[in-house]
Amino acid sequence: MASNSVSTTEELHQSKKTKKSKIEKSENLVGLLFVSPMLLGISVIVLFPIVATFILAFADWKFVTGIDQLQWIGFDNFVALASDEKFIKSVINNAIFIFTVPITMMCALFLAIIIDKNVYLKSYFKVAFFMPYISSVVAIAVVWQVLFHPSQGPINQVLMTLGIENPPTWISDPNFALISLMIIHIWISIGFSLIVYIAGLQSIPKELYEAADIDGANSWYKFRNITFPLISPTSFFLLITGIIASFKVFDLIAVLTEGGPLNSTTMLVWHLYERAFLDLDVGYASAIAVVLFLFVFSITIIQWIGQKKWVNY
C-alpha cells in the first residue's frame, strides 16, 4: 500500500521534483519519529535478547561465574538435550497438553451455539464463562489446590459420597497431576474461545438457516452443513492460538506442582525456568529456548499456510 501511493505521487509530480522530495523527506522523518519509541523498545527488549538466545545456546556458561568463564561448545547443549530425560518428558507433556485445545474448543462451540440463539440473559452468560480467563492464575491455582486436596478437599469428598472409595489424589499423584492441570487450563480457556465463537457465529448469514428450515432440516443437519463449515476459519484461529498458548503455560505449574511429582508435570517453559533461574545454567537454558522458539515458529508457519487453504467463503 504505502509504496504504491508513493509511486503514484511520483508520476503525478515529476515536474515539481524538488518540492516532492522535500515533502517525502519530511514524511520519512515524521514517520520514523512516530514509530521510533516502539522500535527502540522492542529492539532492546525482544530483538536483541532473542538473537542473544540463539548465540548463547552454543555456549557453556553459568551466570554467576562472570563472562570470562564463557566457553563456546558448538552443538554440545543440543546433544545433551537429546539425552536429558527431563527435557524429553517436557516435550511429551507439552504434546499431551495440546489435547486441552480441541476439548476446550468443543465445549466452547457447544456453549456458544446455545448462548447465541437459545437463551435469555446473553451477556450474563458471556461474563460468567469468561470470569476464569480474566482472573489471576495464581489465585485460581491456589483455590484449585485446596479443592483438589487429597483427603479433605471438596472434590474428593463429593467423589467419596458418590461411592468412589479411593479417589485419585490429583496433583500429588504422578498419574493424575498432568490431567489435573489440564482440567484447570480448560476451565480457564473456555471463556476466550466462547467469546470468539459467538462472534464467529454472528457473522454467519441468517438466510442459510432460514433456507434450511424451509427444507425441513434438523438441528444436527444444520450444524454439520452450515455452522461447522462456516465457522472453520474461527476454529482454525482458535486451534493455532490455543496450541501456541499451551506452550506458554507457566503460572499453573509454578504455583501448583513445580514440575512434580516425579517430573510428571514438567514442560518446556518450566524446564527452561529451572535451568536458567534455579541452576543459573545460561547456555543450556538458551538451548531449550531455541527449541521452544522453533516449535512455536513452525506452528505459526503452519498457520500462515493453512489460513490460505482453509477459508470457506
Binding site: 527488549i45 525482544v46 536483541f48 535478547p49 532473542i50 542473544a52 538466545t53 548463547l56 501456541i244 506452550f247 506458554k248 507457566f250 517453559v269 527452561l272 525456568y273 536458567a276 545460561v282 537454558a285 538458551s286 529456548a289 531455541v290 521452544l292 522458539f293 512455536v296 515458529f297 505459526t300
Partner: peptide
Amino acid sequence: MVPPQASLVP
C-alpha cells in the same frame, strides 16, 4: 512470533 520465554535469559 517470539514466545516471551525464549528471550527471558538474555
